[in-house]
Nucleic acid binder design. Structure first.
Length: 310
DNA sequence: AAGACGAAAGTGGTTGA
DNA sequence: TCAACAACTTTCGTCTT
């Protein structure tokens, strides 16, 4: 796991109006994520913040931006599942034909109907992956990996009888994890059209059927994104990661949820660096409750001898 | 008034007989 | 298959700033 650090030649007076960066200077991956809200580019693989303050947005920008945000937050009109083949299949409904040309035609229609619908659902699945990945701001290589995983699941006939929404959501969840930039189940659910229960059902199903092995997510993997969402800079991110590493050495993270650990470490790191965030703020971003943040941060500060003064 | 605290009961997933 | 179990959530009253 690469340790996040500042980019080398980051001069103070270096004007960074337009930044065009193809790959991460740290790990060389093409996993750069451009976060317009926080105006920074960071690497999805190693968490390195490649560039900050890309655009200097004035206050007026904010208003425009929030409008754009709410538009982006809407995931699109609800789909109509029922009318997808209504017109065509009723065209030649002379259903009493038993043999001859009409029978052959009907058979042919049934076959192409099946081919059309599986193709349709496949196209729909890919567009769903694209839509959700876009809402989650995932880099292209993760989208491609997700599409490939869907093809694989299709080849093994794992799709039939299951909702495309559940499968595609679970596939994104899996792929993000595999690429070291895990999303929480809740984040996936927010851009999905189905509930958490169905997503995790599909998730476990896919892991079993494709026998994919996913190592449990490390709390560190969540830190860059959560920090970014809280408006916390690189120093705090580094501090939080250091806390997690020390906790991990003392085996304080065993059996604990990685998100809770990450949330607590960030909470502590922010206070230590004089940029206090309330437990509620951290809770809203991470999706774990304030109670869990409290419990984890009590454990961590106690066991690691960190003085946390509010 | 808001944030932090912690007890107690409830939930959903994992494990082991 | 079922019950025990651990982690986490929900809820809520209390203390602190």
């Amino acid at each position: 796991m690469a340790t996040p650090k500042r980019e080398k030649g980051e001069g103070k007076d270096e004007k960074q109006d337009k930044v065009e960066i193809k790959e991460c200077p740290e790990c060389g991956s093409k996993c750069l994520i451009r976060d317009y809200d926080k105006a920074e580019i960071f690497c999805a693989d190693c968490g390195l913040v490649v560039a900050e303050n890309i655009v200097d947005m004035g206050p007026e920008w904010r208003a425009f931006d929030s409008e754009q945000m709410s538009r982006r937050a809407r995931v699109g009109a609800p789909l109509t599942y029922r009318i997808h083949d209504k017109g065509l299949s009723t065209l030649t409904n002379w259903g009493t034909a038993q043999g001859g040309e009409q029978y052959k035609l009907k058979k042919w229609q049934q076959r192409t109907h099946i081919a059309n619908t599986t193709e349709r659902s496949f196209i729909f699945a890919l567009s769903e992956i694209e839509r959700m990945a876009s809402a989650l701001k995932l880099p292209v290589n993760i989208r491609e990996a997700a599409s490939m995983l869907y093809r694989k699941a299709m080849r093994k006939h794992l799709i039939r009888g299951r909702s495309i929404e559940g499968i595609t959501s679970a596939i994104l969840y899996i792929t993000c994890r595999q690429y070291g930039v895990p999303r929480t189940l809740e984040e996936i659910r927010e851009v999905s059209r189905v509930g958490q229960k169905e997503i995790s059902r599909a998730y476990r199903f896919l892991l079993r059927e494709l026998d994919i092995k996913v190592s449990p997510a490390s709390p560190i993997d969540f830190v860059p994104r959560f920090c970014s969402m809280l408006g916390l800079g690189g120093d705090i991110r580094a501090k939080a990661i250091e806390i997690i590493k020390r906790a991990s050495e003392k085996e304080l993270t065993n059996g604990r949820g990685p998100i809770g650990i990450a949330a607590a470490a960030i909470y502590i790191a922010a206070i230590l660096n004089g940029e206090h965030r309330t437990q509620k703020e951290v809770s809203d971003v991470t999706g774990v409750t304030e109670v869990t943040i409290r419990n984890r941060y009590k454990e961590l500060s106690e066991q690691l001898d960190i003085e946390v003064l509010l």
